[in-house]
C-alpha cells in the first residue's frame, strides 16, 4: 500500500463529501414530509386518496432508483411543456433531478415505515385517551404521534443510511460526489484499492455517525424503557 497515494486519494475524494451530505439531508428531510403525507393518504380510508398513494409506493419501490433518476434527468427534458414550465430552471440542473428522484424514492419507502409506526399504536392507548376525553389533534399529538415516532425510528434510521448509499447514484447524472470522485481516480489510474478504501471509510464514518445519532435519539425518546437506575449501595451493611 502506497501511503503517499492514499493521502492523495483522500485529498481528492474529500471535496465530494459536502455533495453527498447535502443530497442526503435535503432528500431525507423533504422526503419525510412526503412520506407522512403518503402515509396519511393510505390511512385516510378514502379510496381517491388511498390509490394514488398506493400507486406511488408500488412504482417507486418496484423500479430501480437509477431508472427513476434517468427518467427525470433525461426523460423529462424532451417535452416542450417541461422546458417552458416554471420548474425548468430546476429540472435542467442535475442536482435537482437527483434530489427529486432520491426524494420521491425515499418518500415511497418512508411512507411504509411511517404507516407501520402508526398502525403499531396499541388500540388500548387510543381507547384510554378517548375515555379521558381527548380527541382529534390533542389525541394525535399526545398519544399517537409519540408512540408511532418511537416505533418508526429504528426503521427510519435504516432508511437514512440507505439514502446515504443511494446518493452515490448521483454520479451517474454527472454530479461530483464521493463515489463519483473515487470512480474517476480508479478509472484513470487503475489503482483500485486506495481510492476504494478512502471512499468506503468515508461512507462507513457517515453511516456510523447516523446510526449512533438515531440510537441516541431513540434512547432519549424512551426514558420509560431505560429501567430504574441501580439503587445506591446500602452503606450501613458494610460496617
Amino acid at each position: 500500500m502506497d501511503l503517499a497515494f492514499l493521502a492523495d486519494c483522500f485529498l481528492r475524494i474529500v471535496p465530494g463529501i459536502p455533495m453527498t451530505l447535502a443530497l442526503t439531508a435535503l432528500s431525507v428531510s423533504v422526503g419525510l414530509v412526503f412520506a407522512c403525507l403518503l402515509a396519511a393518504m393510505r390511512l385516510s380510508g378514502n379510496t381517491l386518496l388511498d390509490w394514488p398513494a398506493r400507486l406511488h409506493v408500488f412504482v417507486f419501490r418496484g423500479t430501480p432508483l437509477a431508472i427513476q433518476m434517468f427518467l427525470i434527468y433525461f426523460g423529462l427534458a424532451q417535452f416542450e411543456v417541461v422546458r417552458t414550465s416554471v420548474l425548468w430552471p430546476y429540472l435542467r440542473e442535475p442536482f435537482w433531478c437527483a434530489f427529486g428522484a432520491l426524494m420521491l424514492n425515499t418518500a415511497a419507502y418512508g411512507s411504509e415505515i411511517v404507516r407501520g409506526g402508526l398502525l403499531a399504536v396499541p388500540c388500548g392507548e387510543v381507547e384510554a385517551a378517548r375515555a379521558c376525553g381527548m380527541s382529534g389533534f390533542l389525541l394525535f399529538r399526545r398519544i399517537v404521534a409519540p408512540i408511532a415516532l418511537r416505533r418508526a425510528l429504528p426503521g427510519y434510521g435504516n432508511e437514512i443510511i440507505l439514502m446515504v448509499k443511494a446518493t452515490s447514484l448521483a454520479s451517474m447524472v454527472t454530479l461530483v460526489e464521493v463515489t463519483g470522485l473515487a470512480a474517476r481516480i480508479i478509472s484513470t489510474t487503475y489503482r483500485v484499492f486506495e481510492a476504494f478504501a478512502v471512499a468506503a471509510a468515508i461512507y462507513l464514518a457517515i453511516n456510523f455517525a447516523i446510526a449512533r445519532a438515531v440510537a441516541a435519539l431513540e434512547w432519549w425518546l424512551s426514558p420509560h424503557l431505560r429501567g430504574a437506575p441501580p439503587p445506591a449501595p446500602d452503606l450501613r451493611l458494610a460496617h
Partner: peptide, 14 residues
C-alpha cells in the same frame, strides 16, 4: 455500509 456502486467499481476495475 457502503454504496453498491462502489462495490461494482471495485470488482470491475479490481
Amino acid at each position: 455500509g457502503i454504496p453498491e456502486l462502489l462495490v461494482i467499481y471495485l470488482v470491475f476495475f479490481g
